[in-house]
């Protein structure tokens, strides 16, 4: 038997919003440690890795490891039926072919349950090598979303160049060219508004805007975003989910022909 409950549906709703445009379907791997999801987008250019720890749930029970193939479009439709402050419970029997979502209003006067068929998805799991990144940038998530949105008007690629002075985002195309430079913040009163850069050596990489903009759908989950870069390896865009886990997006760089 698998059962996982969150006292507020809002986080799970945001998690679905963060992945449903990039992935059509994915397997939720459940164990007593929590829920893991790893899937590539259809073009195999990016990879989503989601971790929701069992201790972040208000109730979590997983008697036997369980892999649930979910159609994320359908799951998102079901979660749209929950209010942010509803309690949400996911339930599935061990060798189930369906999963049930139960939503309970705060005053317990309204209880809804939705049963969704599970899918048999072939599990292609990728090994992600431990990497000591040359540059790690932490910045406000809203700022990163704004930069990706603004620059995608000027070109279909963004060059991210990180030095000890700061991080520069550039784009160019038919309209013209655009550069946004962020300096490392010296002192801010609110930690979450800081721009911090840990640099071992400078890095400059080119990425497709459409994937970066898809990743920023996770912005509502976290005040900050972390960008990890090294030459000729995928970018990692990480959003921490407070008290529950994280979502990491990996994006393969574009390279000169």
């Amino acid at each position: 038997m698998f059962e996982a409950r969150l006292n507020a549906a809002t986080t799970l709703k945001k998690v679905l919003d963060a992945i449903k445009d990039l992935l059509n379907e994915a397997t939720f791997d459940c164990s007593d440690a929590g829920i893991q999801l790893q899937a590539m987008d259809n073009s195999h250019v990016s990879l989503v890795s989601l971790t929701l720890r069992s201790d972040g749930f208000d109730k979590f029970r997983c008697d036997r490891n369980l892999s649930m193939g979910m159609n994320l479009g359908s799951m998102s439709k079901i979660l749209k039926c929950a209010n942010n402050e509803d309690t949400v419970t996911m339930k599935a029997q061990d060798n189930a072919d369906t999963v049930t979502f139960m939503f309970e209003s705060q005053n317990h006067e309204k209880v809804s349950d939705y049963e969704m068929k599970l899918m048999n998805l072939d599990q292609e799991h990728l090994g992600i090598p431990e990497t000591d990144y040359s540059c790690v940038v932490r910045m406000p998530a809203m700022e990163f979303a704004r930069i990706c949105r603004d620059l995608s008007q000027f070109g279909e690629s963004v060059i991210i160049c990180c030095t000890k002075e700061g991080v520069k985002f550039s784009a160019s195309g038919d309209v013209g060219s655009a550069n946004i430079k962020l300096a490392q913040t010296s002192s801010v009163d609110k930690e979450e508004e800081a721009v911090t850069i840990e640099m071992q050596e400078p890095v400059s990489l080119t990425f497709a805007c459409r994937y970066l903009n898809a990743f920023t759908k996770a912005t509502p989950l976290s005040n900050q975003v972390q960008l990890s870069m090294s030459a000729d390896v995928p970018l990692v865009v990480e959003y921490r989910i407070p008290d529950l886990g994280h979502i990491r997006y990996y994006l393969a760089p574009k390279i000169e022909e």
Binding site: H125, L126, V233, Y250, I255
Partner: peptide
């Protein structure tokens, strides 16, 4: 510029 795929960096386990 040509777009690489993630599978050219991460191997299937």
């Amino acid at each position: 510029m040509s777009q690489r795929t993630i599978t050219s960096f991460f191997t299937k386990t």
